[in-house]
């Protein structure tokens, strides 16, 4: 059974990506070696990726034992969540709300960070970003909901 888990899962991930690539490149014109078309090089790259994925997977089965470092769900979810909150709020509620929402979501990443200081910082950053980017650099952000 597999001992090197980072290689095993890494190799499988590469194989999966190569498979998706093949699937979506299949309908595109391939051309020929002398006249390569849209799918020519990407298909070759996918084939290479598949071969390397296989190699890494096999190494995973044979290599030295290696466990995957623990994944901490809470910080990962809060940081990715902060980006999502920003993206969702930006065009609906405006820049200040998006900044504040992202800061408050990110504060959940570690216990004890969600307090009045984070809220004050969120408000400060929202005001600062709006001043600098909307009015200073003239990037047309929506300001109010």
């Amino acid at each position: 059974m597999a001992r090197n888990r980072t290689d095993l899962f890494g190799g499988l991930l590469l194989l999966a990506i190569a498979a998706v690539g093949f699937l979506f490149l299949a309908p595109l014109p391939f051309g020929s070696a002398a006249r390569p078309d849209a799918a020519f090089l990407p298909t070759i790259v996918c084939a290479l990726l598949g071969a390397l994925g296989l190699l890494v997977t096999l190494r995973g089965g044979l290599g030295l034992p290696d466990a995957i470092e623990r994944i901490h769900l809470r910080p990962a979810a809060c940081i990715l969540g902060a980006i999502a909150v920003f993206a969702l709020l930006l065009e609906r509620a405006g820049l200040p709300a998006a900044v504040a929402g992202a800061v408050m979501t990110a504060a959940g990443a570690r216990p004890g960070l969600l307090d009045w200081r984070s809220a004050a910082f969120a408000a400060l950053l929202a005001a600062g970003c709006t001043a600098a980017f909307r009015y200073g650099l003239n990037i047309p952000f929506r300001v109010l909901p």
């Binding site: 902060a82 980006i83 993206a87 998006a98 990110a106 570690r110 200081r117 950053l125």
Partner: peptide, 18 residues
């Protein structure tokens, strides 16, 4: 860190959008 990392996240989001 509690102030720095949310600020970096926000700047990245603004940068990606702009």
């Amino acid at each position: 860190y509690r102030y720095l990392f949310p600020a970096i996240l926000v700047f990245c989001c603004i940068g990606a959008y702009s």
